[in-house]
Simulated assay, not measured.
Amino acid sequence: MSPRSCFLGVLAVLCVLTCLYSHGHPVAPGDTHLMLCQPHTRCGDKFYDPLQYCCYDDAVVPLGRSRRCGNCTFRVCFEQCCPWSFLVKLRSQKCSSAQTSDDRVCD
């Protein structure tokens, strides 16, 4: 190995180390960026964290968002309003399925 190539190798290592350590500690990205280690799901063309949001009518909404259904309020991320019967059911149930003890009638 020639002295010149050894010198260039040391300079390359120093350059890389200087770049790595010149910016201080790594900074976590803001709310507009996704972190790869967090769970994420798509809603239309947007990604969201399912631990904080859900997809409702192709929009990302907070888990606590609610809407009216007759004289009741339902949580859009967990329940659905069956408008022709003013019945609130879990999102996993079909509006056409038989009424269960978990359903709420909202005249």
Rank of each mutant, 00 (worst) to 15 (best):
residue 46 K to Y: 14
residue 75 R to N: 03
residue 24 G to C: 02
residue 19 C to V: 01
residue 44 G to M: 09
residue 1 M to K: 06
residue 30 G to S: 11
residue 35 M to A: 07
residue 66 S to D: 03
residue 30 G to K: 10
residue 87 L to I: 10
residue 76 V to H: 00
residue 70 G to N: 00
residue 99 Q to D: 08
residue 71 N to W: 06
residue 49 D to M: 00
residue 43 C to K: 06
residue 72 C to K: 01
residue 42 R to G: 13
residue 94 K to V: 10
residue 11 L to K: 04
residue 39 P to S: 02
residue 98 A to I: 12
residue 90 L to M: 15
residue 9 G to A: 05
residue 33 H to F: 15
residue 49 D to V: 00
residue 82 C to H: 05
residue 29 P to A: 12
residue 14 L to A: 04
residue 4 R to M: 13
residue 65 R to F: 04
residue 80 Q to P: 09
residue 94 K to C: 12
residue 103 D to R: 08
residue 53 Y to V: 09
residue 41 T to M: 14
residue 102 D to V: 14
residue 13 V to R: 01
residue 26 P to Q: 02
residue 38 Q to H: 11
residue 41 T to V: 15
residue 36 L to N: 09
residue 59 A to C: 13
residue 47 F to C: 12
residue 96 S to P: 01
residue 7 F to I: 05
residue 94 K to G: 12
residue 91 R to W: 15
residue 56 Y to R: 04
residue 91 R to C: 15
residue 51 L to A: 11
residue 12 A to Y: 05
residue 96 S to Q: 02
residue 74 F to V: 01
residue 65 R to K: 10
residue 51 L to N: 09
residue 31 D to F: 11
residue 25 H to I: 03
residue 33 H to Q: 15
residue 91 R to F: 13
residue 40 H to Y: 05
residue 15 C to S: 13
residue 27 V to Y: 06
residue 17 L to S: 03
residue 64 G to W: 11
residue 57 D to F: 11
residue 56 Y to F: 05
residue 65 R to I: 08
residue 96 S to F: 04
residue 102 D to N: 14
residue 71 N to L: 06
